[in-house]
Design a protein around this nucleic acid. Structure first.
Length: 110
DNA sequence: GGGCTGACGTGGC
DNA sequence: CGCCACGCCAGCC
């Protein structure tokens, strides 16, 4: 009782989100990319793209293809100069403005 | 405990 | 197409 019947969604803890993000990012096919917002949504955290970004910043690079994660505008992550190289190695060509053409490389789940 | 920061997203100009 | 303002939330000083 006393449980207010509000529309609050039972969002998992930040730790749960971290694991969910790792799972999702690890499933991104080579040559494709995903946006922070999309990952947050798939993880069950709508509109929490920033949290995903914070997690990626602390994410273990080398085991996780974090270079396949870009912003909704196709912008690459700051302080991550090797991201462009890693993407290029997978066949992802950037726009003249250093942005990823999501129209072509965004991972669309079949 | 309070305020600023930041691997974001969207809308407006 | 680019820049700015607002909303969002956890982490850091």
């Amino acid at each position: 009782m006393s449980q207010k019947p509000s529309t609050e969604a039972p969002l998992p803890s930040f730790e749960e989100l971290r694991e969910a993000v790792y799972e999702i990012v690890a499933q991104i096919p080579k040559g494709k990319v995903l946006t922070y917002g999309a990952i947050a949504l798939l993880a069950g955290y709508p509109n929490h793209s920033r949290l995903v970004g914070r997690i990626m910043r602390s994410a273990p690079d080398g085991q996780l293809p974090c270079h396949r994660v870009v912003s909704a505008t196709g912008r690459l992550a700051p302080h991550f100069p090797t991201q462009a190289s890693l993407l290029a190695a997978e066949g992802v060509k950037l726009s003249p403005s250093d942005k990823v053409p999501l129209k072509t490389y965004l991972w669309q789940i079949d």
